[in-house]
Amino acid sequence: MRYDYWVIRYVPDPIRGEFVNIGVIAGWDDDWSFRRVNNLRRAARLGGSPILTSSFLRRIEEAIESGLESVESSLADHRSSFDRGEVEDLRTRMNSIVQLSEPRPVLAATSEEAADLAYELMIVDSDASVSHRSRTRVVHRLRDAFELNSELVRHVARFQVAAVGSQETSVDFAVRDGIVHQMSQVWAFDVKNTRHLQTQIQAWNYLLGLLRDDGGRLASRSGRDIVSIPRDVEVNAVFTSPDNAAGEAQFEIAKEGWERLGVQVIPSSDAGLIIEEAERLLQDSSRT
Score class of each variant (00 low, 15 high):
E102G: 04
A108C: 08
D232K: 07
S184T: 14
D29Q: 06
W6D: 11
W28T: 12
L282T: 00
N39C: 02
L210F: 15
I97W: 05
R141F: 00
Q182C: 14
S33Q: 11
A271W: 03
L197C: 01
R135D: 01
I229K: 02
A162V: 13
A76Y: 13
S268L: 01
S222Q: 13
E18Y: 08
E276D: 05
H155P: 10
G178L: 08
E259V: 09
R221V: 08
Y3K: 12
Q198M: 07
G85C: 07
L40N: 07
G47Q: 08
W187L: 10
V98P: 01
Q198W: 09
L148F: 06
N244M: 09
E65H: 13
E252V: 10
S222F: 08
S96Y: 11
N193M: 04
E120W: 04
R231F: 06
N39F: 04
R221W: 06
D30C: 09
A44I: 09
H78S: 13
L68G: 08
E61C: 01
D30E: 14
S49M: 03
V191C: 09
R42L: 12
Q198D: 15
S33F: 14
R231S: 15
E72A: 13
R104F: 10
L90K: 05
S268Y: 09
N21T: 01
E120G: 04
H181R: 14
G48I: 06
V238W: 06
S55M: 03
R91C: 06
V156C: 01
D127S: 15
L210P: 09
S74V: 06
S268E: 14
V171Y: 05
G209F: 10
S101K: 01
R91K: 13
R217V: 15
I51H: 08
W28A: 14
I179W: 10
W6S: 13
Y119Q: 15
R35N: 10
A114Q: 09
R158V: 07
S70G: 05
A114C: 10
